[in-house]
Design a protein around this nucleic acid. Structure first.
Lengths: 202, 202
DNA sequence: ATTTATACTGTATATATATTCAGTAAAATT
DNA sequence: AATTTTACTGAATATATATACAGTATAAAT
């Protein structure tokens, strides 16, 4: 999808906000009032640009005939599900996104940034099973005992976090797997975030 | 909330459907077209009746200024969380409802009726931990291997289901707990539903 | 160097839309 | 028995709204 200009983003945000507030889309005049434009044609041309770039559709002749496209409507209120591939870091890049789940406030106690699809049973005894979706909050501030997403070079794992001094232990919750010992300054080591919740879809 | 007449229900359904279809509310003329009325005043008076009864609000002077009230809008549906108390069945009775979670379509693969707050670790090896919320679909049609909510007299448990002939086995996912053997015709035995998903809030 | 896109103001207008008024008729309520 | 509610048709109208046209100016793309 083509990139939007700053003004076009403002207009798109204005439409979303207006719908959220009133339950129906704005008129050209409403947009002008919200954004301080003095001519309805300012709104009109922005709308046509948004339409051309595929962010909205406009029903010609209908009042308030603005419709957010699926991509536009969803992205604002949905959380990406990212696959935990053995080699490769969980980034929000499009190619890693498995699907989107409609966003919901207060689903967990903490806010979070994305879901991680779990592969393997290394955290089995913590009740984290294959194909579970772990809610991840992007942060490097983690405490001992937290379940963290750790990256070592291109390898990404979900483990218990335990640090003492410069030494970090990544502990699996499964006797069949080994603990991983790392130095804080090890190159290529990074804490991506921590688990703040879990969803099992079946 | 006051009861609606058949025609008023039709109009309300028409509004919901129109919004779902187009993304914005209908005009009086739109409603007439959908329901076969020949005068815009037919729609107008139905709308005013719906407003009077509290199902919608109307922004005067604005085109398409129809707004579904919170009760009316389907987005405001919520799912109850029910505590699994040792003695007492999980019913939708108010005293058993811990809280409500905003409803969301397609959160799990199947639809479901309520969340059950898990007590104890009898299903630990199935990745179901203390305080997890198990999504329960109310049904008595369960298959071998399903995780079910079974009631024996006033005791309610979450277990694997296994039946052969008249004999039913309720199997825990934890070696520290014992299997339960029951006859299908046992008085006071009942399958409340089955697990179709799980949420861990932390 | 020229075209296209962005970012507006300002005016004008056909029409889309809400809304009122005048009726008719049956059903429900008081 | 009288009043209110429901359930419409049909006509009229003020105004809300989309949208085209005429400009100005800058930035980006070709």
């Amino acid at each position: 999808m083509k990139e939007l200009t700053i003004q076009q983003k403002k207009v798109l945000q204005c439409i979303k906000f207006y719908i959220k507030k009133t339950g129906f889309p704005p008129t050209r005049a409403d947009i002008c009032r919200e954004l301080g434009f003095k001519s309805p044609n300012a709104a009109e041309s922005h709308l046509r640009a948004l339409e051309k770039k595929g962010y909205i559709t406009i029903e010609n002749g209908a009042s308030r005939g603005i419709n957010l496209t699926e991509n536009t409507a969803e992205k604002s209120q949905s959380i990406p599900v990212i696959g935990l591939v053995a080699a490769g870091s969980p980034t929000l890049a499009d190619e890693n996104i498995e699907k989107h789940i409609p966003y919901q406030e207060s689903l967990f106690l903490s806010d979070f940034d994305y879901f991680l699809r779990v592969k393997g049973l290394s955290m089995k005894d913590a009740g984290i099973m294959e194909d579970d979706l772990v809610a991840i909050k992007k942060t490097s501030e983690v405490r001992n005992g937290d379940i963290v997403v750790a990256r070592i070079d291109d390898e990404v794992t979900l483990k218990y976090f335990q640090s003492s001094g410069n030494q970090i232990k990544l502990i699996p919750a499964n006797d069949d797997f080994d603990e991983i010992y790392i130095n804080k300054e090890t190159e290529g080591f990074f804490i991506e975030g921590k688990s703040v919740g879990l969803i099992r879809e079946n």
